[in-house]
Write a protein that binds this DNA or RNA. Sequence first.
RNA 1: GGACCCGUAGCUCAGCCUGGAUAGAGCGGGUGGCUUCGGACCACCAGGCCAUGGGUUCGAAUCCCAUCGGGCCCUCCA
Length: 627
Amino acid sequence: MVFLKLLENIRCKTAEILDAKNYTPVQFSVESAKPGFGDITCNVPFLLSKQLKKSPQEISVELSRLYQFGDLPQIKKVESHPSGYLNFEIDYTKFNNIVISASIEENYCSLDIGKKEKIVVEHTSVNPNKALHVGHIRNVILGDVVSKILKKGNYDVKVLNYVDDSGLQVADIIVGFKYSGFSKEPPNDEKFDHYCGDTVYVKTTEKYESDKQLEEKRHEILKQIEDRTSDVSKMAQTITRRVLAEQLKTVWNLGVFYDCLNFESQIIHSKLWEKIFEKLKSDNQIKYEDSGDNAGCWVISTEGEDDKILVRSNGVATYIAKDIPYAAWKLGLVDDPFSYKIYSTQNNSQKLYETTLDENLKQNEKLNLSGNKVITVIDNRQIRLQKIVTNLMAKFKENGVYTHLGYESVTLSADTVKSLGISVDGESTQMSGRKGLYVNADAVLETLIQRVYNESKNRNKNLSESELQNIANTVAVGTIRYEMIKPDLDKIITFDLKTSLRLEGDTCSYIQYSYARASRILEKIQTEPNFNSGFELLSSNFEKNLIKKIAMFDVQVNDSVKNLSPKVIARYCYDLSVAFSSFYEHVKVLASETPDLLNARLCLVISFQKTLKSALGLLGIDAPERM
RNA sequence: GGACCCGUAGCUCAGCCUGGAUAGAGCGGGUGGCUUCGGACCACCAGGCCAUGGGUUCGAAUCCCAUCGGGCCCUCCA
């Protein structure tokens, strides 16, 4: 903690001063000031204005005189601004040393917000009947980054992927394989998930229009899938597992990993719903309708909303009814019916488990995957259903234990839709798996890798093939991740094939480039820089700005953890890079006038690199030595 | 008909949660900058009644209400 601590010190000192004057306490803010207004700013004069019946400026002047020399060792000057703000100027001769020394520590700006509390993050959760498209990628990346940020905030995070392997979408491809004559093997070397999604799923659902008999088969198949002993169910298991394996390759390529896979078919089979159903009845959370439109159904009511049916009049539970037991399971509110086995070891050498109902494994050590809190990443179209689950979990346990992290969808730009050979009106279009209206994630990554590869090859004549491929991969993955994280959660992302290939301006490659440039400087130095002293020599505005940005990492981590806001870190990475680029352009490190100054600047470059690498790490983005 | 989200520069967006100073970036447009660490760069210019109208407040892009425009959800589908 560097900047947060400084802000806290100022806050405490200021509170002391107010206390000594016997002012009624007020909630004031102490935060980083915008450029041109000192380094840190406090709004307390505005808040005291009414109480003291004086203008903010008068109060500001009065207060600025009450800070004693030595109260705040890292502050050089406290000053009143005509606007009424109380502004603080950092004493960089002292601050530099503190920041640079702290920034090279292993866990720089890790914060103990979570106190090791267990928290479950669920994301991805795509039906295993198709390949992931760019819309799914927003979910995957958001979930992954949130889990990394929570770890930085010292939460004990478990990451789950819910595999909905027994729904209608799965039934659709089984119908395709069984009745529409689609070959079990994809043509040529096509990836199996692409084949199932692009061909089998799209073509089969298309056929329902003209072939009503086929559509009836769909419901038959769905029923048979739920009977785990049937041949159809076994066939569904084989196919969904194969699709899942391909989906996992896609996310692993993006650097996303999980702790456990949960299969919906097993949740249904485990009778968790039946237990929860009894609990809901005995707690009077749901009611049975004797008459009206919903006669014969069990429904749940939410304030200000229509009743939602949980169990149909024929006794079959609805979709939402599957979510409730799963949510309860994630929170550890029900006895765990599952055993666990290793699904595989992931690219990062982390073991991936899967749930199983296999009785023989009952003796195995239980994995405890439940959390005190749960975060479920699902797009905002499901907000209504998620609200019901959230409310219910609050009643089962307590407020705030279940969080639906929602976000707006990813749409396709008109140009991109056109390039798929489909004509549509309007500026952007919702994706649709059923209509074949989407762009596969694998395709996007591949295009980006090619683009970066060419770019890098043009710029670097002397890089080896494997180096070029590493760079292409690092920059391409970083670019996708950055573009998915940068916008606010409730902003629609309009995906455009062309603009997604941009590598200039506010992009990941700009950020990575600043890191690579820093590496070029350090590469040319033979001796190890000495971190013991001399940082007061860093006195230009370019140097001070960079140091301040490095120091402010903890403020951003704090903000992003507390507000579950990944974009805060994305913005920080960009701002940090901008500060470095400006420094790089104006301060020639290797041409420093004295050895001491050279040493200090080299330390600053290292400090910048470590901080940027760590911030990018939270976004799951690698920092390349060259590109 | 009901619920939720969005509307800030030509375009894409930060800032809004937690009201306060001169509303910030990127792209696009214009100008300048490599005999020294990589031009995926830097420096600068032009471009804004922060959708509209009201309210709260000493003070509103920010909070509240209404209206308009756009999106999305609201099956005994999953």
